[in-house]
């Protein structure tokens, strides 16, 4: 809060990451301002999740830097990384719930292990998080006893229970039905208003993401091909962005065609 407004909360500089011969992130330079929600979109396999893991310090980039409040983060600097992680949450695409812990224990885990909050406060926060995500009746169940959608909501509860300043969402709505998808984006919006967090959302749900985010970054071939407001994204004539953007509409039309018994239009893979 005290640093100048010009310093982004989170930024990357010429980030590169390869796995063997395959270059996943070629040169990613990105800035996330405090309080904004940035949606990172792009086709499958373009490195969106890898980018998010580099931002969270789960993966070490081969070169380039991740900056938090202008200071570089490194897996070798555990003090800085720990301080960053106390202020950041990560929602994994596969949820990454600890399967030996109950729903309650999963949500309580970051508070019990990484904060000095008193037990009554932890209990109150966990109960509140579970209630908000309609999981209060499933608190004693294990992740394996929950449906995919419920697991996603549980992971969301765990990500938000610490009231982080920065939340990294990796496909927060994957595997959810349309109603739940809307509910999750609504919840993110509510939580953002309440706690004022900054968010980076990797998603394939273009309409919901455009409605919920302040800025869109389009990742293509390991680089940020486009960055702008949702309106700019909707209006741009860039052929690569247009092809991706219009593929969502084509997909919707093809599904409608199938429903009507007509021939579906080919839709580009949205993954």
């Amino acid at each position: 809060m005290s640093e100048p407004a010009s310093v982004p909360l989170l930024a990357t500089r010429a980030l590169q990451k390869r796995f063997g011969e395959r270059v996943v992130l070629a040169d990613v330079t990105l800035e996330v301002q405090r309080g904004e929600v940035l949606a990172v979109v792009g086709k499958s396999g373009t490195g969106k999740s890898v980018l998010l893991k580099c931002l969270a310090g789960v993966l070490a980039p081969d070169s380039g830097a991740v900056l938090f409040e202008g200071l570089p983060l490194s897996r070798d600097d555990e003090t800085a990384l720990s301080a960053f992680r106390r202020r950041c949450s990560y929602l994994f695409q596969g949820n990454a719930l600890l399967d030996s812990l109950t729903a309650w224990e999963n949500v309580a885990l970051p508070l019990e292990q990484a904060t000095l909050l008193p037990k009554p406060e932890i209990r109150a926060r966990v109960a509140d998080a579970l209630r908000r995500l309609e999981l209060e009746n499933d608190a004693r169940r294990y992740p394996s006893q929950l449906s995919g959608g419920m697991q996603k909501r549980l992971a969301l509860a765990r990500a938000l229970v610490t009231r982080p300043e920065l939340v990294l969402f990796d496909e927060p709505t994957a595997g959810l039905d349309p109603l739940r998808r809307n509910a999750v984006f609504t919840l993110i919006a509510h939580a953002r208003r309440e706690f004022g967090f900054t968010a980076v959302v990797v998603t394939h749900d273009l309409p919901e993401a455009l409605a919920a985010c302040d800025r869109v970054a389009f990742l293509d071939h390991g680089r940020i091909h486009f960055s702008g407001t949702p309106d700019d994204f909707a209006a741009t004539g860039d052929p690569v962005v247009s092809a991706f953007r219009d593929s969502a509409a084509a997909l919707a039309r093809s599904i409608a065609g199938l429903r009507a018994g007509g021939a579906p239009e080919p839709a580009e893979d949205l993954g």
């Binding site: 399967d99 885990l109 292990q113």
Partner: peptide
């Protein structure tokens, strides 16, 4: 158990929670 926790990103999740 640890191998499955590694594969399902549970160990990465602990790290991101500051644990």
């Amino acid at each position: 158990e640890l191998g499955i926790q590694r594969n399902s990103e549970q160990i990465d999740a602990l790290e991101t929670m500051g644990i």
